[in-house]
């Protein structure tokens, strides 16, 4: 078990180098000189362009820029933005907020998605099953920005149940509305997966056997059906955790959440290489860690899966 964790952690090292390299090359491949953007519609003199390119190492070849960045990162310095801010500081400021937003969204997904999926799966073809299908369909058929605008307008402005935008310090209560929007999209996936999985599991012999033994529904459903149905759902939620953080870009923008997604989009617009690469690399690391946790969870959910070696 412990060896399994160590092995997975060691695998994280090539992932780190691989992702920094790929992202660095992607940003490098973006056409357009970030220096020119800083001047708006005004065209700077060649001397100014040269001076600023030198300042940000933009005049150097790809590999030397990459190693320059890597050297900084290995010393714990994630670089500075073109505006002279430390990326470490930016991440320390924005990451906790996004993490909280993503956690809240996951809780909503688990709470509502799994519960609704379970009911829909157990009462397949019933009223609840069909109603949940229609509602989730409505949600996934809406692009995230439409859903966000509708939610902001309806709950924030018309009904006044929540602040239309996130307020000082991003308290949990303000994060609820954006978290619902964020969860909404994947809610449909979670619900349908749970439902499908529940239907499949309930037809297994061990479920019939459990009922046959005379166990009550109250025991069979949570212990035998739900637990065995959670594998694909867990994977999906883990996989989605990365999306929650990155995909929060649009939602964070609309609800003014001071998070990473927002910061990343701004950095992409500025072609701010160190900032983009650092943010995405951190996301990769978080993602790797979450996945290790999920794989370990498999073992708990399904005793037949064992980690050997």
């Amino acid at each position: 078990m412990i060896w399994y964790i160590i092995r997975r952690l060691l695998q994280g090292i090539p992932v780190f180098f691989g992702s920094t390299f790929i992202i660095f090359s992607m940003v490098f491949a973006m056409p357009g000189n970030p220096v020119l953007r800083m001047f708006g519609d005004r065209t700077p003199s060649p001397e100014q362009i040269a001076a600023l390119e030198a300042k940000f190492h933009l005049d150097q070849p790809f590999l030397s820029r990459y190693f320059l960045y890597l050297g900084d990162v290995l010393q714990g310095n994630l670089g500075t933005t073109y505006a002279g801010q430390s990326v470490n500081e930016i991440l320390a400021r924005t990451f906790p907020t996004t993490l909280r937003l993503a956690l809240l969204a996951v809780v909503i997904q688990l709470g509502i998605g799994v519960l609704a999926g379970l009911i829909a799966g157990l009462r397949k073809g019933g009223v609840f099953d069909n109603a949940s299908l229609v509602i989730t369909l409505l949600i996934i058929s809406m692009p995230v920005f439409v859903f966000a605008f509708v939610a902001q307008w309806l709950f924030g402005i018309q009904l006044g149940w929540a602040r239309p935008t996130v307020g000082p310090g991003a308290p949990w209560s303000d994060l609820l509305l954006p978290a619902i929007v964020l969860a909404g999209l994947n809610l449909a996936y979670v619900l349908r997966l749970t439902r499908a999985s529940v239907i499949e599991t309930s037809q297994n012999d061990f479920v019939r056997m459990a009922y046959g033994k005379g166990l009550t529904r109250g025991r069979v459903i949570p212990v035998h059906i739900l637990r065995n149905s959670m594998i694909p759902v867990t994977t999906n939620i883990a996989a989605d955790f990365g999306i929650l953080i990155v995909g929060a870009t649009v939602t964070e923008g609309i609800f003014n959440v001071p998070g990473v997604g927002n910061e990343l989009f701004k950095a992409i617009n500025r072609h701010d290489t160190p900032e983009i690469v650092s943010i995405v690399t951190i996301l990769v690391i978080v993602y790797v860690l979450v996945n290790i946790a999920i794989d370990l969870l498999y073992g708990v959910l399904d005793p037949r899966i064992r980690y050997v070696k």
Partner: peptide, 13 residues
């Protein structure tokens, strides 16, 4: 691990 890398790269980027 390749999947991890690709997955973590935001599709917006």
């Amino acid at each position: 691990r390749i999947g991890d890398i690709f997955f973590a790269i935001p599709y917006i980027l």
